[in-house]
């Protein structure tokens, strides 16, 4: 055989040579698609009972344990210790939820499912923003469970205090989703899961969420005050303790957020390069 290439077949003549393909009416809007995806993703995540139970069980259990032992004490300024513990244990729970949920985003992305989502009308950035919102919202059951346990243990706060404690914790811990995500981008899935658990424990312990920082040696106090977990706790306690607003904490958390975003971006580029596709 001398020739192996067959010339292309004659293509059927086009029906029309001038009309562009009609653009069909779009029946959904960008906002509806975004909200629909966000809400359905959240419901899907919250229905994962083992995952939610895992996020709730330890902080709530630890809180009930410590509150039973020290809860009826009061501080020098007359604040009930069970209320303070409620806030710091909720911060620990929220931290764990944010890290795990952030890590789960990368596991879903790494599984290849996001490639299928890239074939929809939703831009990849919108999908990512929705996923981060869902991860932030995964803190709600973790914070809520400890707060409910606190109420059961006799913590009495005004509605404004409950709401501001909850809101400040949620806002202060939200950047930790990016830490979980970055962890997933830098490490293989199993290492990333283990890493997010380890980081949760270390940040909680060193950040004074389990034992007050002022019970620790000076060197550890210095380290603790550089951690976002410490400041999340302080911001959450502010409505109860009063005093000057911890602006320093906002600065520390903002600095961490910038650093984590940079870490995430570098990790993302690295992950894209090494996966070839």
């Amino acid at each position: 055989m001398s020739t192996t290439v067959i010339p292309p077949v004659a293509l059927p003549a086009p029906v029309s040579t001038s009309t562009a393909p009609a653009i069909r009416p779009v029946t959904t809007t960008r906002v509806r698609r975004f909200l629909g995806y966000t809400v359905r993703s959240y419901l899907g995540a919250i229905r994962n009972v083992p995952f939610v139970a895992f996020l709730i069980a330890l902080p709530t259990g630890l809180y009930l344990f410590y509150a039973s032992m020290y809860g009826n004490q009061t501080t020098n300024s007359g604040v009930n210790v069970s209320a303070l513990m409620m806030v710091t244990m909720a911060a620990y729970g929220g931290l764990g939820a944010a890290l795990s949920a952030g890590n789960a985003i990368q596991q879903e992305r790494g599984s290849g499912w996001f490639r299928q989502l890239a074939l929809t009308a939703m831009a990849p950035l919108d999908v990512m923003v929705a996923k981060v919102l869902v991860a932030v919202a995964m803190m709600v059951p973790a914070l809520g469970a400890v707060f409910i346990a606190g109420a059961a243990k006799g913590v009495t706060l005004t509605p404004a205090e409950w709401a501001s404690c909850f809101g400040l914790l949620l806002a202060a811990l939200a950047p930790m989703v990016i830490l979980g995500l970055a962890l997933g981008l830098w490490f293989k899935p199993q290492a990333a899961s283990a890493g997010s658990t380890l980081l949760t424990l270390m940040l909680s312990m060193l950040g004074g969420l389990w034992f007050p920082l002022d019970m620790m040696p000076d060197a550890m106090q210095t380290v603790g005050k550089l951690l976002p977990s410490y400041w999340a706790g302080q911001l959450g306690l502010w409505p109860i303790l009063g005093g000057g607003f911890p602006w320093q904490g906002v600065g520390v958390i903002a600095a961490w957020t910038v650093a984590l975003i940079a870490l995430g971006v570098v990790g993302y580029r690295r992950a894209v390069r090494s996966s070839r596709r």
Binding site: P25, T27, T28, G36, Y37, R40, L117
Partner: peptide, 10 residues
């Protein structure tokens, strides 16, 4: 259902 909600004219 999830993916249907993400398309332009499913």
């Amino acid at each position: 259902t999830l993916v249907q909600g993400m398309h332009a004219h499913p």
